[in-house]
């Protein structure tokens, strides 16, 4: 059996090794994507992977630079971003207003929740033909599709969040003589916030998907148009640039929501279960 001093040394050694592990794995995790990129580049350069199927990474990077320099890419991003923002704002406001009405009153619940629960089952991308008939092929059907996609996850989560607030806390609020408005402001809304933010993340994910689908249809500007136009000329490099930008925008919005979560739910982060 080893002495306590030796044990301590071994433990310290183990701690040091453990501390080094994450960084090492971090670097290790970069190896395989880089190897894949290199293989892709090699396959393209050797002619094994023809450009009409997919362009070489180096070519794609060059195209990204060119498209940025001549303003095509910033312009397309601007148009697409505007559609997402408009659709998101409309959908989010509608969702939150409906969820509040349904969550805070019995009448509202009976009036709003049944149709919302029925409509959520609707595959809303299937509404595109109707939207084209109703709104034409301009900006409106695209914004409308994003708004619709945003509204449902946000509504469902906000409503569930309001209904899920701990009844004990509401009772405590009532014994503190909080009026209805104060109860909503201090107890119900903060209590529903964690679930609402889950809904926000889901709905932002859906927003980008809805935009991509909507932009496949008769777009004359934006990222989707850029991609479709590139297909006509078999510019696989431009298509990939468009896809990369879509994912980057999705990741950025997700990071923003995470940031909001971290700040708004600081009270929960303070709790560290043993």
């Amino acid at each position: 059996m080893s002495s306590p001093a030796l044990d301590l040394g071994a433990a310290r050694q183990a701690a040091r090794t453990r501390a080094r592990v994450p960084r090492a794995t971090g670097l290790q995790r970069l190896i395989s994507p880089i190897v894949l990129l290199l293989l892709w580049q090699a396959a393209s350069s050797s002619g094994l992977l023809p450009e009409r199927l997919i362009a070489a990474p180096v070519k794609i990077a060059g195209t990204a630079v060119d498209l940025t320099a001549d303003g095509t890419l910033p312009n397309a991003i601007g148009v697409s971003l505007q559609r997402v923002v408009e659709g998101f704002v409309i959908g989010a406001v509608a969702a939150v207003v409906l969820a509040l009405a349904a969550g805070l009153s019995r009448v509202g619940e009976n009036a709003i929740d049944p149709p919302m629960q029925m409509l959520r089952a609707l595959p809303f991308y299937g509404l595109i033909p109707l939207f084209i008939l109703w709104f034409g092929i301009g900006e409106t059907p695209k914004v409308a599709l994003v708004a619709l996609g945003v509204a449902f996850p946000l509504y469902l989560n906000t409503y569930a969040g309001i209904r899920g607030v701990d009844g004990g806390l509401i009772e405590a609020g009532r014994t503190l003589r909080l009026g209805r408005t104060a109860l909503i402001r201090h107890v119900i809304l903060p209590g529903a916030l964690p679930q609402t933010l889950v809904g926000l993340r889901q709905s932002l994910g859906v927003a980008w998907l809805a935009l991509i689908v909507a932009e496949q249809v008769n777009a004359d500007a934006g990222l989707g148009y850029m991609i479709n136009d590139a297909r006509e000329f078999m510019r696989t490099d431009v298509i990939v640039v468009g896809l990369v930008v879509y994912s980057a925008l999705g990741l950025i919005t997700d990071a923003v929501v995470r940031l909001i979560e971290r700040r708004a739910l600081a009270w929960r982060r303070a709790f560290q279960p043993a």
Partner: peptide, 10 residues
């Protein structure tokens, strides 16, 4: 109350 029922976000 038996459980303190403090609002965790305040």
């Amino acid at each position: 109350f038996q459980e303190p029922r403090l609002l965790p976000w305040k």
